[in-house]
């Protein structure tokens, strides 16, 4: 029996090993792997170049009520956006956990519109299909969008059912009692609310077909 020569082993295994080593060892990105203009493009979308003047003071992270659930604090997200870590930023949970409370927006000493930055990143992540699969928040946003685009108004009960169907239908069991309590108090409607002049609404909304990707 002829053993494979060392050279063949080398050529077969090396790319795989290198890939593995990359994942395990290297934590720093080479400049060639970054998207260097990413920060500028995000800043353009989020009202002005202020994002680039961030002094990394961390006021945003300190004032954020959700910072301790985030994988990167808002300060880090801004630093990473500015430096071009596009994939990491768009894959992060941070942008989705932002509940738009505008606490950082009003506290920022550089007047960076951080909430608008987060919205810009959310839009980009959805458009590029970057968000973590089955994470309910982007799915809620998409379902809300569909509902309002169609009817002009949102019906909360329908929105929640479509959210649970797309994420985890078993949650409906968990929420059934609460739903029933709300229904008995007349706080959940079954009929779908809609505007009268849907044609007018659709002329306004279907005019745009989304932004160009960043």
């Amino acid at each position: 029996m002829r053993l494979p020569t060392p050279t063949t082993v080398h050529s077969e295994e090396e790319p795989h090993k290198i890939e593995k080593m990359k994942r395990v060892i290297r934590r720093i990105k080479f400049e060639s792997e970054l998207d260097l203009n990413f920060g500028e493009r995000v800043a353009d979308r989020a009202y002005g170049q202020k994002l680039l003047s961030c002094i990394q003071c961390g006021t945003c992270s300190a004032t954020c009520p959700l910072a301790h659930y985030m994988d990167y604090t808002p300060r880090k997200i801004i630093a990473m956006t500015r430096e071009g870590f596009k994939e990491e930023v768009l894959n992060s949970l941070t942008i989705w956990l932002c509940a738009s409370c505008y606490s950082c927006y009003v506290q920022c000493p550089r007047q960076i519109h951080i909430t608008d930055v987060m919205y810009t990143l959310k839009r980009e992540a959805i458009q590029m299909g970057f968000h973590p699969k089955r994470l309910p928040i982007p799915i809620l946003a998409q379902e809300f969008y569909k509902r309002v685009l169609k009817d002009g108004r949102n019906t909360e009960s329908w929105l929640l059912v479509s959210l649970y169907l797309r994420t985890n239908p078993f949650i409906m069991l968990r929420e059934a009692i609460l739903g029933l309590k709300l229904f008995l108090r007349g706080r959940l409607t079954i009929g779908r609310e809609h505007v009268k002049r849907r044609d007018q609404l659709h002329t306004i909304l279907e005019h745009k077909k989304g932004e160009a990707p960043l």
């Binding site: 919205y119 810009t120 959310k122 839009r123 946003a141 998409q142 969008y145 909304l205 745009k208 932004e211």
Partner: peptide, 11 residues
Amino acid sequence: ATSYVSIDETD
């Protein structure tokens, strides 16, 4: 609300 602007800002 906060959802629509997460999909399309102009709209």
